[in-house]
């Protein structure tokens, strides 16, 4: 077993286990912390796939910004208690069966799929330099449009969280 395969299994195990803990943890704060572990495992996968730029952006955006926002909201709404109401057992059972069937269907669909792989693919496409070139040449317009999206999101968030809307 090669070292990459061992790292792959370790990161996958970590990602799936902590993802399950996100769903099944009683305390919302614990869910957030497990989700951060999942994100770090996924960032490790990005590094394994030699996408260094995305790994860095992933950690900065998700672990740094989004999860802090989640934690902040949970603390602000004072939801960090274990006495959260739960769904009825029958609904939980049906949900687990439904998710299991979805998983079964997708795995069965992808099992026989022949995926084309280019063995001589260039590993340097994930570097900051080459990705930056693609981003600012071919995708310049979408990049600028996303700044408008951010502006709209910012205005919306500020407006929505104002105390007296009327």
């Amino acid at each position: 077993m090669s070292i990459t395969l061992i790292i792959f299994w370790f990161l996958s195990f970590m990602a799936i286990m902590s993802a399950l803990m996100v769903v099944f943890a009683k305390n919302p704060v614990h869910s957030v912390l497990y989700l951060i572990i999942t994100f770090f495992a996924i960032a490790g996968h990005y590094l394994l796939l030699s996408a260094q730029f995305l790994a860095a952006v992933h950690i900065i955006v998700y672990a740094g910004a989004i999860m802090v926002l989640f934690l902040y909201v949970i603390m602000m709404l004072n939801l960090n208690k274990e006495t959260e109401p739960h769904k009825k057992p029958i609904i939980k059972f049906v949900a687990v069966v439904a998710a299991g069937l979805l998983m079964l269907t997708l795995v069965a669909a992808f099992k026989g799929a022949e995926v084309k792989v280019i063995a001589s693919a260039d590993a340097s496409i994930g570097s900051v330099e080459s990705l930056g070139k693609v981003l600012f040449k071919e995708f310049l317009l979408p990049f600028e449009v996303s700044s408008i999206l951010f502006l709209a999101a910012m205005v919306g968030a500020v407006y929505l969280s104002k105390k007296d809307l009327h």
């Binding site: 030699s50 996408a51 590993a123 496409i125 994930g126 080459s130 990705l131």
Partner: peptide, 11 residues
């Protein structure tokens, strides 16, 4: 994107 050597996926 990595396995097909295409950087568009990462963008």
């Amino acid at each position: 994107s990595r396995y097909l050597g295409d950087s568009n996926g990462q963008v």
